[in-house]
């Protein structure tokens, strides 16, 4: 079964890098920009999305044969909304402070286009195992993106990471970084960085092709 194993691995890894929901597909921008002013907020938001995406993908994929095509979107939304409600109440009970800071953005996970997109494009067409693996990959990619944005913004905006001071007390905070424009600027620069890395890799692969050398890690 080596073929199949490779397949599973590919489905997982594509969400992390090649089809990263944020840096490549540019999906889920609303939580991406709104709640990434600190690393903790970003991680909690990413974790909540992670749970909702994996659980809904599992259910949508299991139920795909019983969902009528005409009402599939509303069915997906109901399934997603169930898990969002679970997440919302859990966070409210366990982390009231963070829950308050995230505010309306936890219920808004239901409208996250990345989650609905995975149900429509992948979970409803593939086996349960692949759907879960795909959801795990995509959710990890989303978490990674949220965390990198939140970390950059918190380090520059407050000189801290997870609330721990990284610099001496003399650090001059970059106020703009914890304000909305800082989110846009940081996201733009991160997109620039990832596109640049991707282009460089593509160029390298093209060069290898020209030299007729089989690259080992062609995706």
């Amino acid at each position: 079964m080596p073929e199949k194993k490779q397949d599973t691995y590919q489905e997982f890894i594509k969400g992390l890098w090649r089809d990263n929901p944020v840096f490549v597909q540019v999906l889920g921008m609303c939580p991406m920009l709104a709640v990434t002013n600190s690393a903790v907020n970003a991680l909690v938001m990413g974790g909540a999305t992670f749970f909702v995406l994996v659980a809904s993908s599992f259910f949508v994929s299991s139920l795909k044969n019983w969902i009528p095509k005409q009402v599939r979107i509303s069915t997906y939304i109901i399934i997603i909304a169930t898990f969002v409600t679970v997440t919302d109440f859990t966070l409210q009970a366990l982390m009231p402070v963070v829950h308050k800071e995230l505010g309306a953005f936890i219920p808004l996970i239901v409208a996250n286009c990345m989650i609905l997109g995975r149900q429509e494009a992948f979970a409803s067409r593939n086996s349960v195992r692949l759907a879960v693996v795909d959801a795990l990959g995509m959710a990890s990619g989303f978490l990674f993106a949220l965390f990198s944005l939140g970390a950059v913004r918190e380090i520059l905006g407050e000189g801290a990471l997870f609330g721990f001071k990284l610099f001496s007390d003399d650090f001059e905070p970059w106020v703009i970084m914890i304000l909305p424009p800082g989110g846009f600027i940081t996201l733009g620069l991160l997109l620039l960085l990832f596109n640049w890395l991707k282009e460089r890799k593509d160029r390298l692969v093209a060069q290898l092709d020209e030299m007729e050398i089989e690259p080992r890690f062609r995706s």
Binding site: F167, D170, E172
Partner: peptide
């Protein structure tokens, strides 16, 4: 002459 990233 504040050091980079430090307050003046």
């Amino acid at each position: 002459f504040a050091l980079p990233f430090m307050q003046p």
